[in-house]
Amino acid sequence: MSSAEPAGGIQVRNLRFSYGERPVLAGVDLSVRPGEIVGLLGPNGSGKSTLVKVLSGVLRPYEGSATLAGRELKDMATRDVARTLAVVPQEPVFGFSFNALEVVLMGRHPHLAGLAFESESDIAKARTALQRCGALEFAHRPVLELSAGERQRVVAARALAQEPDFLLLDEPSSFMDIRHQVELYDLIRDQSDNEATGVMAVLHDLNIAAEYCDRIYLLKEGRILASGPTAEVFTYANLKATFDTDVYVDVNALTGRMLVVPLSQRRKPR
């Protein structure tokens, strides 16, 4: 699997990162190819969000290697990273009375020079992104007045407006209802299929992962426990080892994809 990778994707080799003395990523190998959705799953504190931050240039320095489309992340300016890769964060932060359209326009930031103003085409891109995320109706409302789910859609639109080669999603659907979750992931799937965007999604919901991801990485204590196509990775043993929780794993009769149901600890193990 490793040697045949095209140079265009995200390649992570033996990546290590620690907060001071505490190692969080202890040698991670991972890849994301253009046009595929890769799920990153693991218990709380396993290092998923840290990996997102390292790959988006927020946390430096790291040891090991991480390349974006063939370029080593270390050697890239913050701005170059932002032109290549966009992030939909878990808990987006806002300030002042910027409206949704203005926030999405900020996605054009890495593509503009100096004090430049957004052009008509930038604005058109922002509006398209808002529309694709179902957020056009509140384009002119201050983001701080929107609900958490609405804000999440604005942030997704901003990431699309950034026109990245790669999208990193950090549990983007935490505050969304099912309908909006499905709409968001359908959109991501479209983006991946049509624009060949490589997506790495940190997910909590195993069934969403099963429905949308091409491949899965299971992360625990800063190490990859298992990786591969969803059907191969989603086994009782792998999931039990990763989450220390009993699950029932089956195949969804309707879709043919995996189905995972968590089981109460109070239930006697079989």
């Binding site: 931050k53 988006s56 240039g57 927020v58 300016a77 913050t78 701005r79 170059d80 990273v81 932002a82 032109r83 966009a86 992030v87 964060p89 987006p92 932060v93 806002f94 300030g95 002042f96 910027f98 203005e102 926030v103 900020m106 996605g107 930031h109 890495p110 503009l112 100096g114 004090l115 430049a116 950034q162």
Partner: peptide
């Protein structure tokens, strides 16, 4: 300060958010 005005816009998204938009 005016020359980095656009960076301040991005900074309203938090330091992490601004970094991910390419702000140093």
């Amino acid at each position: 300060l005016f020359l980095q005005a656009r960076d301040y816009n991005a900074m309203t998204l938090g330091e992490e958010g601004a970094t991910q938009l390419g702000v140093d």
